[in-house]
Every structure is written in C-alpha cells, then in structure tokens.
C-alpha cells in the first residue's frame, strides 16, 4: 500500500510523499519494540512524532510512517523523512480505527 492509498483510506493527509508500496504493517509506540519487531520495508502506525521516529525508520528500514490520533509531526521529523525518502501520513483516527480501515 502506498502513502496515497493509506491517506485515502484513513481520511488522512500526506506530509511527505513517496511511491513506496508497503506490503507489511506494524503498530506500536515504544521505539525499541518497533526496532525488534517491525519488518523491513513496512508501514508503521504510531502516535510518536519526535525526530527519533525518523531515526528508527531509517535504521529499521521502515518506509512509511502513519501518525494517528491527530498528532502533529515535529518539523525536524518532516525534514529528516524528506531527506531519507520516508513517507509520512497523518490521520485523526485512532490506531485501532486506522488499522481496521487498512486491513
């Protein structure tokens, strides 16, 4: 699923776009859990929005970040994701509703 498709399904907005087509998903907020469990090339659904989220995505090779519950990404996060070609989608939906609509 691409950032555009995720955004359309969750009534979201694209903060950073890419054409990457994620085949797997992971949900979670504790960064070490994400690094231990999220598959490479996945889309990651979270409420964490600080710049470390970009670091985790880069190093764990996560390609799309889906920020739910209406959290606003920090400017640093957006900059880092642009630089690293990691897509960012924001949605007002909660993680459960977001996952339900993406399944």
């Amino acid at each position: 699923m691409t950032a555009k498709e995720i955004s359309a399904k969750t009534n979201g907005k694209i903060a950073v776009d890419s054409d990457f087509d994620a085949k797997e998903f992971y949900v979670g907020d504790f960064l070490s859990r994400v690094m231990g469990k999220a598959p490479a090339d996945s889309a990651w659904i979270t409420v964490m929005s600080n710049v470390n989220v970009a670091g985790v995505a880069v190093l764990a090779e996560i390609k799309i970040i889906v920020l739910c519950e209406g959290v606003t990404p920090s400017e640093q996060l957006i900059d880092r994701c642009k630089e690293q070609q990691i897509a960012v989608v924001t949605t007002d939906l909660g993680a459960y509703e977001c996952c339900r609509l993406l399944s």
Partner: peptide
C-alpha cells in the same frame, strides 16, 4: 514520553 524505556534495547542488541 520520547518513546524509549520499553526495556527492549539490550535484548535487541543481543538478538
């Protein structure tokens, strides 16, 4: 609040 502190860092490093 920054997302750290799950107590999974050292286990991940080992893994």
């Amino acid at each position: 609040e920054l997302g750290f502190g799950a107590g999974m860092g050292l286990p991940n490093m080992k893994k």
